[in-house]
Design a protein around this nucleic acid. Structure first.
Length: 676
DNA sequence: TGCAATATCATTTTT
DNA sequence: TGATATTGCA
């Protein structure tokens, strides 16, 4: 085992004997390297590869880690279990969830399913759903579940309507999920925990299976995830966790920085190693990043020591509009490509997914190779959702949410009135929706024509399910879409032939992914596992496949990655830091950590941009520079103002740093101070 | 019931 | 602005 490429701290972390170990690793200090080497070292010490479990936060990180392990440790690494919390939870659930009353093949409800379900329940509970944002109800339910508390209807907190509504809907929500044989994302952690509690033999089995645990990005774990780790670790307590409190960016999802800061308390006797030498970033990048993060009050102060020769300074550029911003970034990408920097060594990062569009347009216009990572747009297209709903219905007869979605898509004469009667009948008779459909003729008050259409639909579904048992599922899916005239309907429904084409291409993408899975899984491919995989691990193919492209992604998605050149766009108030949801104060410290994560992705060059105006709801709105820019160290940053000259308006109460920026702008040429 | 015109209204991050 | 919900009409 060659440890010569590690520094003393890294070596200590890698070779610390078994037992609880906390590695506090600053950005770029070789965190992943330490985990990978430690695993290799454990194997060299005689650990069985299949007894080692490494947990990461995202699938991207898991794949990356696995690849590095294969390079370092060779064949044995194939047996290692590298997984995300949720994928691991799904695996535990898959084996034993039936003990808690779920069907053996349960489905994972994704965000869209949750939303539809909650909407339906809100209506059923007859809370006036108009005034309520179902998404916030979903969020409130999730928050309460992860806090380990059922949402309380008797709101002690009168202030929060959503908490009250969530409390009211929650029991129905849980019941409905289970009735559909489904679990949500939170359940993928919570239900295994319940299994562990109520069926000790299940826990014992998994403890026997995994002798050694390693967890990356531990600062982003929430309470149930910590419990999960504790449960698996047992008395053996051979747990190594790695993380950086400065990079905790998921507190909105219940992440507890305290999990890492109080690790000692959870695992007494923990050895601790601090990695503070930064191998990744040029000093100017590091200086900017440190300046921004050090304004966070509650953090473990740490100094990242740069280990590289000075590079180019960080650039901060102001442009007139978001279109100009995108163009300027695209030009920058083009220039660097010409200079020989590979496309996949560059990334464009932003706070929100919506910001990718102008960038995509500008890059396309120049014919530059890029890839948007992790965008949700694909799965939000109506056609994609419809097709997936069809497949879900085929896979899971209990999935009523999906059934209701597609029963009249394409329009087949089953309208609201018919559905009302069917659902009322089902409720009265205590029947499932599916059963009711099969015998629609028996439903009173239903026009014979309508009943016939319903039964025809029901027969279609039954026919497809039957074919699924004998034929490859990709083939069945295709023939289903032909049968229902999906393509024609899509074409008819969109004015523009090009748009229809694009939509059908998306659907083709879904089918292709299904067929790829089928080919990979050979004989034992089934629809439910594919769908669950899709929810757990969306877009896996694209992610690893695309090389040689500039990556576009959110700051959250960028965590754990690094690039030679990073463009971070939209450094404006309301965007970074984000304005948060109406009524809810944004967590400024978290936004700051997010900026820090973005900055520290850059190895050689960091380019920050902002636009003086941005289109918002079609209106051009003036923008204020991000407050984080005030903290940039002037001697590590060059400022560039590319807005059109206009009379400077010195607003009162401008922070003093803007005065300094203004000085620089004057010196640099055409000027325009950041507008207030 | 289905379609098209009109009104409304949005505004994070993700497993 | 552009996506979705709702309404009004055939």
């Amino acid at each position: 085992m060659d440890l010569s490429r590690l520094n003393p701290e890294q070596r200590e972390a890698v070779t610390t004997p078994k037992g609880p170990l906390l590695v506090l690793a600053g950005a770029g200090s070789g965190k992943t390297r330490v985990i990978v080497y430690r695993i290799a070292w454990l194997l060299a010490q005689g650990a069985r590869p299949d007894s080692v479990l490494a947990v990461t936060f995202t699938n991207k990180a898991a794949q990356e880690m696995k690849a590095r392990l294969l390079r370092l440790a060779g064949r044995p690494a194939e047996e290692l279990w590298v997984s995300t919390f949720h994928a691991l939870g799904a695996e535990v659930a898959r084996k034993d969830l039936f003990r808690l009353g779920w069907p053996r093949r349960f489905a994972v409800a994704d965000a869209g399913d949750q939303l539809c379900l909650v909407r339906r329940l809100l209506r059923a509970v007859s809370v006036d759903d108009r005034a309520l944002d179902a998404r916030r109800v979903v969020a409130a339910i999730s928050r309460a579940k992860n806090a380990g508390v059922a949402p309380q209807p008797d709101a002690a907190q009168e202030g929060d309507d959503y908490q009250r509504v969530a409390g009211e809907v929650f029991p129905h929500y849980q019941r409905a999920l289970r009735a559909q044989g489904a679990v949500d994302f939170d359940d993928l952690i919570l239900l295994p925990l319940q299994l562990f509690r109520e069926h000790p033999e299940v826990l014992a089995r998994w403890r026997r299976r995994f002798q050694t645990l390693l967890v990356d990005e531990f600062q982003d774990t929430n309470a149930p995830q910590l419990q999960f780790v504790q449960a698996l670790a047992g008395d053996r307590r051979d747990v190594c966790v790695v993380g950086d409190d400065d990079q905790c960016i998921y507190s909105w999802r219940g992440a507890e920085v305290r999990n890492i800061l109080d690790f000692q308390a959870h695992f007494p006797g923990t050895r601790e190693v601090v990695l503070g030498r930064n191998y990744r970033s040029a000093p100017a990048v590091l200086a900017a990043a440190s300046a921004v993060i050090s304004a966070v009050p509650e953090r473990r102060p740490k100094v990242l020591v740069a280990d590289r020769p000075p590079g180019v300074p960080v650039q901060l550029v102001v442009l007139p509009s978001e279109g100009d911003e995108a163009d300027w970034v695209a030009r920058g990408v083009e220039r660097r490509l010409q200079e020989g920097i590979p496309a996949d060594e560059m990334a464009i990062l932003y706070r929100t997914n919506g910001q990718s569009r102008p960038l995509e347009e500008s890059l396309s216009a120049r014919g530059l190779p890029f890839e948007v990572l992790g965008g949700t747009e694909f799965f939000q297209q109506r056609e994609v959702k419809d097709v997936l709903a069809y497949l879900k219905v085929l896979a899971n007869p209990l999935d009523e949410v999906s059934l209701l979605r597609i029963i009249n898509v394409p329009a087949r004469g089953i309208g609201d009135a018919t559905m009302e009667r069917l659902l009322a009948h089902a409720r009265r008779e205590g029947l499932g929706v599916q059963q009711t459909l099969d015998r629609a003729a028996a439903v009173e008050g239903l026009a014979p024509g309508a009943a016939a259409r319903v039964e025809a639909f029901s027969a279609l579904v039954a026919r497809m399910r039957a074919r699924l048992r004998a034929e490859p599922m990709g083939q069945v899916a295709r023939s289903l879409l032909v049968d229902i005239g999906f393509a024609e309907d899509t074409r008819a429904g969109s004015r523009d032939a090009g748009v229809a084409q694009a939509r059908l291409r998306s659907v083709e993408g879904v089918l292709a992914s299904l067929e790829a899975y089928q080919a990979r899984a050979a004989g034992k491919a089934d629809l439910i596992s594919w769908l669950n995989r899709l929810s757990l691990d969306a877009r896996e193919e694209e992610q690893s496949a695309e090389r040689g492209r500039v990556a576009l992604m959110t700051l959250h998605a960028a965590k754990g990655l690094e690039f030679r050149v990073v463009f971070l766009v939209g450094l404006e108030e309301g965007l970074l830091p984000h304005a948060g949801m109406l009524g809810e104060a944004p967590n400024l410290d978290e936004e700051r950590r997010l900026a820090y994560v973005g900055f520290t992705r850059a190895r050689d060059e960091l380019i920050l941009t902002r636009a003086a105006t941005r289109l918002r709801r079609g209106r051009e709105v003036p923008r204020t520079p991000s407050r984080f820019l005030q903290d940039l160290p002037v001697d590590s940053v060059v400022f560039l103002d590319l807005t059109l000259p206009s009379p400077p308006q010195a607003g009162p109460g401008q922070p003093s740093v803007f005065a300094r920026l203004r000085e620089q702008f004057r010196a640099a040429g055409p000027e325009e101070p950041p507008s207030a």
